[in-house]
Amino acid sequence: MPLWPVYTGTNEPHDGISTLPPPPPWRAFDGGPVLGAPAEGDASATSPDRTHRAETYRATPQTVQLVNAALYLRRPLLVSGPPGTGKSSLAYAVARELCLGPVLRWNITSRSTLHDGLYQYDPLSRLYAARQAAQVSPARAGLPETESGIEDHLRLGPLGTALLPYARPRALLIDEIDKSDLDLPNDLLNVLEEGQYEIPELVRTARHAPGGRAEVMIDGTDERAPVERGRVRCHAFPFVVLTSNGEREFPPAFLRRCVTLRLRQPDDTQLADIVRAHFDGEPDAYAQTLISRFLSRVGGGDLATDQLLNAIYLARSSDLAADSLDELAEQLMPYLSEAPEVDAF
């Protein structure tokens, strides 16, 4: 009998991902050759700030249920909510608990395109390298593109790497999707639905490569992965977290293909638990006061939990008088929608 929940929210690493049942027939993928887990020595796997995020994340029961729904259904998880509610930290927490390896992260801007997430190819650097090689050995000037090292100038992006045929799902964070161009969510539909994509530069040159295979650099590391005939298809669908601050609406076709999780501002019990996790101990009297002040102000506008954590940290780490601490705490917890004050000259 499959284990439910696979992700428990306890932050204790385990191999529960191996107990997932087979995917629904309409979400089954057969990409190959199947790859093993990425190297744990990658820098993004040991980054102290990301490790701390994962260890201190506190999941609500609703979060646990919907993360497991996304894992079982092999669907992306669209996480929305106010700033500072732990949307991006969720990806690191799930990856750590389920031992999914380093989180692949794609930070979205208004200029981001689907191509950016899949792969980057630098034809100018390839042309320069080919000219340099021809000067050293004129006989190489007429070689096919693949033999002149086209794969050395191509690197898979976060999305492209996540869709490689790994035996276990990779974790992919697509952060702040609502900042994207209007077309990006629609452009993502086919790739996330089909779990595959093509690299035209490799498709064109596949006939020149032994077995049609190219060894391509992957995101976040100097390691390489085999790509056959320029086509990538996943084997285990990645655990994809898309975050949104709720600044825009998404097309119904996009929402239909996602499991949707709406995070809310934590209450006093949850805030105390978050403070306990970050500071490794019970909140002291002043921290409780700051929690109460934070909660009383939430109704007046958007506040982020890390604003509260910053105020508590300074209260614990400085010897400021109580009045100075109160004044500093007010300055550290402004409403996020307020425009900053500018001194007149």
Results as ranks from 00 to 15, higher is better:
L303R: 01
V232Q: 06
A37E: 13
E215P: 07
L309G: 00
P5G: 08
E215G: 06
L73R: 12
G195E: 10
P185W: 07
V240L: 04
L314N: 03
S148C: 12
H235K: 09
T305P: 00
P13M: 07
L303E: 01
S292N: 13
G149I: 03
A134G: 13
H278T: 05
R140N: 09
Q288H: 12
Q331H: 13
K179Q: 04
L127S: 12
Q265R: 08
T205W: 06
I312Y: 07
A287W: 04
Q331E: 10
D273S: 11
P102F: 15
E201V: 12
E40K: 09
E198N: 02
A45T: 05
Y92V: 09
L309F: 00
F294Y: 13
V227N: 06
R264K: 03
A206Y: 02
M333K: 02
L104Y: 00
P61I: 08
A209Q: 07
S337D: 11
L66P: 07
S110E: 10
P24C: 11
A139G: 02
L3E: 05
G211W: 03
G160I: 14
I218R: 11
R257N: 10
T10C: 05
Q62R: 15
H153M: 09
Y166K: 10
L154Q: 01
E228L: 11
T10E: 14
T8C: 09
R75G: 12
D306M: 09
D116P: 07
G281L: 04
I150H: 00
S88E: 08
R257W: 08
D219A: 15
V275Q: 06
G246H: 04
S89P: 09
D122Q: 06
Q65A: 08
